[in-house]
């Protein structure tokens, strides 16, 4: 059996590939920013003294981590539709991915919070800082620094998982690929190109996180050592 590959026939659709890749990156960007926010809040909430808040945050995290992403996407898609909300596929995709990655972020951040020595918090309390100030000034950045590699992987994973958003016809990279391969009958070539593009997107994201780390952790920039 010999394989006949015809890349030019597929590659001439590069503007579509590019548009799909850009949309994937946009999905990943918004879901990462919003998911980081929600996940951090949920992690703080799980440590709340109010049992209701802690319980709600725990329920959110466990519900999401124990259901498939595709089902969550459909739930958001059809849920919002049945509420009479007409939102674009992109908005629905961002919402679903945010809810999904927020739960995983919450678990990672919780581990980060727990890695902060008790003495740090007592020292801050002894200086009369409020609970909120302690989270903001003392806990947050060192916690993020401790789990930064895990966070980076989680958000890259989210970008790759966003391919299932093709199911609700968000025009991201995989949706574009599905369309091109059915058009050109060159499925293998199409998905090889798509795979390479995903690898490039992953590298772009990792580079972005590396750069962000330089801004977030000035001590590390100067001393080069993790906390």
């Amino acid at each position: 059996m010999s394989i006949q590959l015809d890349f030019p026939a597929v590659l001439e659709r590069w503007p579509s590939f590019l548009a799909g890749a850009v949309l994937t990156l946009e999905l990943a960007f918004f879901a990462t920013v919003l998911g980081a926010l929600i996940g951090t809040l949920a992690a703080v909430g799980r440590g709340s003294r109010s049992a209701a808040i802690a319980g709600a945050c725990k329920f959110y995290v466990e519900a999401i981590r124990n259901t498939p992403l595709l089902v969550q996407i459909f739930l958001v898609y059809f849920g919002l539709a049945s509420l009479g909300l007409k939102l674009s596929a992109f908005t629905v995709a961002v919402a679903a991915l945010t809810i999904n990655v927020g739960a995983y972020t919450a678990e990672i951040m919780r581990a980060g919070f727990e890695a902060i020595p008790r003495g740090q918090i007592e020292a801050a309390e002894g200086l009369a800082l409020s609970r909120l100030q302690i989270y903001w000034h003392i806990i947050l950045l060192p916690a993020i620094e401790k789990v930064y590699p895990a966070l980076t992987s989680q958000f890259v994973l989210l970008m790759l998982a966003s391919s299932v958003c093709s199911q609700i016809s968000a025009e991201e990279l995989t949706a574009v690929a599905n369309y091109i391969q059915s058009d050109t009958y060159r499925a293998f070539e199409t998905y090889i190109i798509v795979a390479v593009l995903y690898i490039i997107l992953s590298l772009v994201m990792r580079a972005g996180f590396w750069g962000l780390g330089l801004v977030l952790f000035p001590r590390r920039r100067r001393l080069g050592t993790p906390l």
């Binding site: 007592e122 801050a124 003392i138 906390l227």
Partner: peptide, 12 residues
């Protein structure tokens, strides 16, 4: 003011 055995300076 309270000072502990383990200093507890904020490392970051």
């Amino acid at each position: 003011g309270i000072v502990f055995q383990s200093y507890n300076l904020f490392p970051h």
